[in-house]
Amino acid sequence: MIKVLLIGCSGKMGKMIYSSSEKLDTIEISAGIDRKSDAISKFPIFTNINECTIPVDVILDFSRPDSLDGILEFAASKKIPVVLCTTGYSEDQIKSIKLFSEKNPIFRSANMSIGINVINNILKNISSLLYEDFDIEIIEKHHNQKVDAPSGTALLLGDTIKDSINENTQYVHGRNGNHKREHSEIGVHAIRGGTIVGEHEIIFAGEGEIIELKHTALSREVFAVGALKACVFMAKQKPGLYNMDNVLNL
C-alpha cells in the first residue's frame, strides 16, 4: 500500500483525490497539509508540512506555487518522491524543480488528465506536418475561480507545438487593434466563467479546411485518477524529472 501526503487536501481537488483513492486498494491518503482544517477528515491534517510526522511514500501537491520551496526542502530532507500538479510556477521555480530532480525523483505535469496527455502526444507528431499550411490557435476555458491565465495546460500544449516546429513562432495572447495575423503566431485565448472544469481546443485553420483537437473535462475526477497513477509510478523511481508521458508510457 502506497502512503501519500496530500498537500491542499481540503480543497476541491484534494477532496476528489481522497474520494478516488478510497476506490483503490493500492494507495491511501495517510496525511494532509492545508491552511484550512477539515473536521470530518479520515486522516491527520497539518497546517505546515514540517509538522507532519506521518511516514509516507510520496508527496502529492495540489496547492499553490508559493508552497514549492517548503515542499522541496521537506522532500529532500526525508528522501520522499514528489508529484507536482500545481500550475503557475515562475521561471525561477521551474529551475528549482530541475535542480531538485538531479538528486531526487520528482514529477511535474500541467494536466493530470490521460486524455490531455494523449492529445499532447498527438501534437508532437502532427504540428510540424501542418504548420506550413495551417494557422494555429489554442482556446482554453476554466471556472471563474482559476487564478492563472493562460492555463498551464494551454502552455503545455503550446510549448509542445512550438518545440515540434523548426521555425521561430511566438504566442499572441488575445487580439486587439488593426493588423493582420502573422503566420508565425500561435494564438492563445483564455476564457473564465461559471464552473467550467476545463476545456482545451487546438485549431489548425487552413485554406478551405479546419482540423480541431478538443478535450473537455466533465469532472475533476479525471485529474484525480491521473494524479494517483502518478503517485503509484513515482513511489519506485530513481532521481529525475518525470511527467505523464512516463506514467502512460507514451
Rank of each mutant, 00 (worst) to 15 (best):
21 S>F: 03
41 S>W: 02
224 A>W: 02
27 I>K: 02
59 I>W: 05
108 R>S: 13
153 T>V: 13
192 R>W: 09
228 L>A: 06
216 T>A: 00
184 S>M: 00
168 N>W: 11
116 I>N: 04
217 A>V: 01
238 K>M: 12
29 I>Y: 09
134 F>S: 00
210 I>H: 00
162 K>Q: 15
176 N>H: 09
163 D>T: 09
179 H>T: 13
233 F>E: 03
98 K>H: 14
214 K>R: 13
29 I>C: 00
237 Q>G: 07
182 E>H: 02
13 M>S: 12
10 S>E: 00
175 R>C: 12
140 E>M: 07
145 Q>M: 10
232 V>G: 07
133 D>K: 15
78 K>H: 11
146 K>P: 08
200 H>E: 04
183 H>N: 13
43 F>Q: 01
2 I>K: 10
179 H>N: 12
201 E>W: 01
190 A>I: 00
20 S>R: 08
241 L>P: 11
79 K>S: 11
197 V>P: 07
183 H>A: 08
237 Q>C: 09
9 C>P: 02
119 I>H: 02
107 F>R: 06
229 K>L: 08
152 G>W: 14
146 K>R: 15
94 I>R: 14
10 S>T: 15
76 A>T: 07
43 F>A: 04
222 V>K: 02
60 L>N: 04
98 K>T: 13
249 N>Q: 15
60 L>P: 03
101 S>Q: 12
5 L>E: 01
110 A>H: 04
73 E>Q: 09
235 A>T: 05
214 K>H: 07
112 M>D: 02
48 N>I: 04
226 G>E: 02
216 T>Q: 06
243 N>H: 14
10 S>I: 06
92 D>A: 14
118 V>H: 06
55 P>E: 01
63 S>A: 10
47 T>I: 01
12 K>L: 09
99 L>H: 12
244 M>L: 14
101 S>C: 10
37 S>F: 02
205 A>V: 09
